[in-house]
Structures are given as C-alpha cells and as structure tokens.
Amino acid sequence: MKCGVVIFPGSNCDEDMVQVLEAQGGGPVERLWHKEHDLRGCDLVVLPGGFSYGDYLRSGAIARFSPILQEVAAHAERGGLVLGVCNGFQVLCEAGLLPGALLHNGGQRFICRNVHITPATKRTALTSAIARKVLTIPIAHGEGRYHIDAAGLKRLKDGDQVLFRYCDAEGNVHEEANPNGSMDHIAGVCNEGRNVFGMMPHPERAADALLGNTDGMALFTGLLKAVAV
C-alpha cells in the first residue's frame, strides 16, 4: 500500500494531509509535484486543499491541465482510489472526474469554521468506517456551493453517490445548517465507479487528538483499509 499527495503551486494543506496519512499508518507518503508524469505506484492519490494557481479563472480550472492530472485520471480510470479535499474537490470537478461544479458561496464570503456533516452512504471506502451519524469537520472555502443540473442530481441520488450533507448538531439536514448554499446540502460526492471522492470539509484538520477533534479520522481509516487489501 502506498499513498501520494499531489502538490500544485498554491497548495497549502498538502503537509497536513501527508502528516495525517502517515500518522494513520499510510506512510511513508509520496509528495507528487504537479509537473510529474508518474504516480510512483501510489494506490491512493490525494489532491489537497489550497489555492492552486491562485484560484485564477476558476478554482481548480488551471490545475486540471497539470501533467500529473493525466496520470490521476488514468489511475481513476483503472479503479484506483482518489480523494480531493476542498481545492482538490474543485480540481476533480473541473477535470470531469467528479460530476458537478463548485460556485462562489451563496453569501459571497469565505467561510472558515467547524460545520456538521452527516454521511449519506456507507457504500464507499471513504465512508465505510464512519460509525457516527454526525461529524464535526472544519470548512475553509470561498467557492464551495455545489451545483449540478437536475438530471445530474437525479443520477447522483439514484446512484447513491452523495457522500456527505451539511446538517445541524443533531444530524438534521435543512437550509439553516447549509453554510454555502450547496444544492441539496451536498458537502461531498463520489463518481459512478465509487473510487473517486470529493468533499469541501477538511477531514485532515480533524484527525489528531492534539488538535482537539478526531472526527475526520474514520475517513482515513476506511480509505487506508481499502488500499491495504
């Protein structure tokens, strides 16, 4: 089992992701510079948060044309596991590896705070090890309003591809608990093949007891279990 974290110019959550993966037993983790053409045999590839290419044009729009993304797409096509968090999620959507797009938050503000999310499916490597109904995970984004057309939303729901929805502390999903105006309160989705995952909240910022929140740990437990076999 081998994990890799892709680094773009402007990534800023890459070292947090490396640290968490290694602490969870997924290391030593490869740092994959975006200009590379080789995933170095990684089974799990993570696209971290940040502001790749300064978020110029649209978040993730330019990063999707980085050389490493061709390799990530081929890895995904082979059924390999890919996780994109925040900017990583935006890149995966721009690259067409995940359905939908991420628009400016409904309130037009950058939001950095803890939110509650509830897993919407157990049937993925990312969510299989989550025992709780509600997780508290921080978000930090200006462009996290998930959008997809009506037909696409139906496909997502019919295919059980919604990973997480924003909710309140009790796990109820409603307008007031939706921080950014995301369609259907969606905080994360996977592809049809259930091997590419994207989410706006940052589980790597909630996976160390020293930081006072370990709610994100179960996501890595599930992922690493899937690549260990």
Binding site: L57, R58, A61, I62, E94, A101, H147, I148
Partner: peptide
C-alpha cells in the same frame, strides 16, 4: 475546455 465551465 478552459475559459468557461459549461456547468455554471
């Protein structure tokens, strides 16, 4: 391919 995202 790049300048516009036709989803949005």
């Amino acid at each position: 391919k790049l300048l516009a995202n036709l989803i949005m």
